[in-house]
Amino acid sequence: MSLVYAGVLSHAPGITGRANLVDNVAKRDEFYANLDTQRQQIKDAGAEALVVIAAEHFGNFFMDNMPAYCMGIGEFYEGPIEDPEWLKIARTKIPGAPDLGRRLVCEVMKTVDTAFAEEWKFDHGIMVPLNFLTPNYDLPVIPVNINCQGPPLTPLHRVWAFGEALRRACDSVPERIAVVGTGGISHWPATPDSGKINEEWDRDFLDRLMRNDKDALLAYTDEATYRDAGQGGFEIRTFIAIAAAAGGKGELQFYTAELPIFAVGCTVASFDLAA
């Protein structure tokens, strides 16, 4: 088995960009401490590469040619595309894993059609997680995007299939691979409603996710998610893909709706890896 870690975490730009505006500093620092624990877990697992399943925000892909899924096979990447002062993450180069990425793509393609890309500019959706999980940018990264922004969006049962395909791909190579899914649960980001969080909906989703209850996770419709969890709720796709890849139950290490300045219910969790 070469998948050695699977987890999820939030990626909202406020997590770094608005850190200085937070009233509840103790809760913010508790969140950061859990992210650092996740970094340590990935390191302790001996990960040689980090696959980040993200929901990018028009950093690379647009409606002129929007892939449902895309995997990075570049030698390096750059980010963030946003103003570094705004995100409070310095612009940098991030090492890729082109050979490993190609082998993973080939395996995934046996069951799920994925696009691939040798160029990729990371936005906050990947840079915020990397800022905490590999702050020295010394762990090769394979970015993965699931389109959660430009409808029509890929259906959830295909997200599950993609997660399973990624797992099979990881298990087909000798390298030790960590995968994280990064997105929001309920949130209304980048609107005047920024900071609105449906905590009850979040906790119900996280319960389904931690139980790794496939039927319950795939029961959501985009219409209901949009109504109850906002347009940001479409990003549950990244978390569901990780559940499918992991196969085991999850452990919710941290969740809070008490940091609305970050515009999302802040989440950190890891999963058991089913054989």
């Binding site: 430009g150 980001p189 347009q231």
Partner: peptide, 8 residues
């Protein structure tokens, strides 16, 4: 305009 595009 999509909020993510507008925010950036």
């Amino acid at each position: 305009v999509n909020g993510q595009i507008l925010m950036h």
